[in-house]
């Protein structure tokens, strides 16, 4: 399989502090890849670098073979990469439906259109309605996103992320703060909505990681110390010492 995402010798420093130190990684198209590591390992920074929120100090980031390092987030999104956030990041005053419709507009080619009536856009309506159903928020269609429960907001966050039909989906701790039932529902949702897509995920819940991922990369102090299948990662002594042992798994 060709690489959907490839990182080559990636570095990121803030002043003298190196956060990402020569990181290289390839994620194949259609793969579900999880990135795990202790707090402060650089997982969120890595997400920010790939999605354009931060610019790398050096190194290369390629999306489907095209260099995207240093591009603005919207330029990267238009090339087919979408991400969610650790802290819910939606449009709180817009309704659930409007959140999803807005998130679908660019990918459907409506861009900055000020000459078409949004209510007349059947494709945007169809996509928003189908997404609402898939994330289980049809009953909350007209509720402002800001008043939804935490689990509903996390589901909407995933909905907004996938609404643009990007090939590569990045989810930053999608089950953070959820109870067991909510986590199970979230995992089922992620499995359903990312079918056929490339998924890169940062997650602390090892049950979720080992249940979902095809491959796992272990990030410690800005470097990947292991990258393998869940079964092999579980047996890797270096990983157990650096991370899993600490987590008590």
């Amino acid at each position: 399989m060709s690489a959907a995402l490839s990182l080559v010798d990636l570095h990121k420093s803030f002043g003298l502090t190196q956060i990402i130190r020569g990181l290289s990684l390839e994620v194949a198209a259609g793969e579900r890849h999880a990135i795990i590591g202790p707090n402060g390992a650089g997982k969120s920074t890595l997400f920010h670098l790939i999605s354009g929120r931060l610019k790398p100090t050096s190194g290369e980031i390629r999306l489907n073979g095209e260099r995207i390092g240093g591009l603005r987030p919207y330029e990267i999104n238009r090339r087919g990469l979408a991400r969610s956030f650790q802290v819910t990041n939606i449009f709180p005053k817009l309704s659930v439906y409007e959140n999803l419709r807005c998130a679908a507009l660019w990918s459907l080619g409506h861009k900055y259109s000020f000459w078409t009536r949004i209510e007349g856009l059947r494709d945007a309506r169809a996509r928003a309605e189908s997404l609402m159903e898939r994330i289980g928020l049809t009953a909350r269609r007209d509720a402002p996103a800001g008043v939804l429960s935490y689990a509903e907001q996390r589901a909407l966050e995933i909905g907004v992320t996938i609404a643009g039909d990007a090939d590569v989906i990045m989810l930053d701790e999608p089950t953070a703060g959820m109870n067991n039932t909510e986590t199970e529902q979230a995992v089922a949702l992620i499995r359903k909505v990312t079918e056929g897509k490339t998924l890169v995920m940062v997650e602390h819940d090892m049950g979720v990681v080992f249940g979902l991922a095809d491959r796992i990369s272990v990030l410690v102090y800005g470097q990947i110390i292991a990258c393998d299948t869940p079964a092999r990662i579980r047996e890797n002594d270096a990983v157990r010492e650096a991370y899993l042992g600490q987590a008590g798994h």
């Binding site: 999605s51 919207y74 979408a82 990041n89 939606i90 449009f91 507009l105 000020f114 945007a124 643009g164």
Partner: peptide, 30 residues
């Protein structure tokens, strides 16, 4: 009518959360 277009809706979106708008393909500055 302007408020009822894709552009008008995205103005509301960028008003609410400019960062998120950037991650769904829109330049908040534009």
């Amino acid at each position: 009518a302007l408020t009822r277009t894709p552009f008008g809706r995205m103005c509301n979106a960028v008003r609410d959360n400019p960062e998120r708008a950037e991650f769904i393909g829109y330049s908040p500055r534009m």
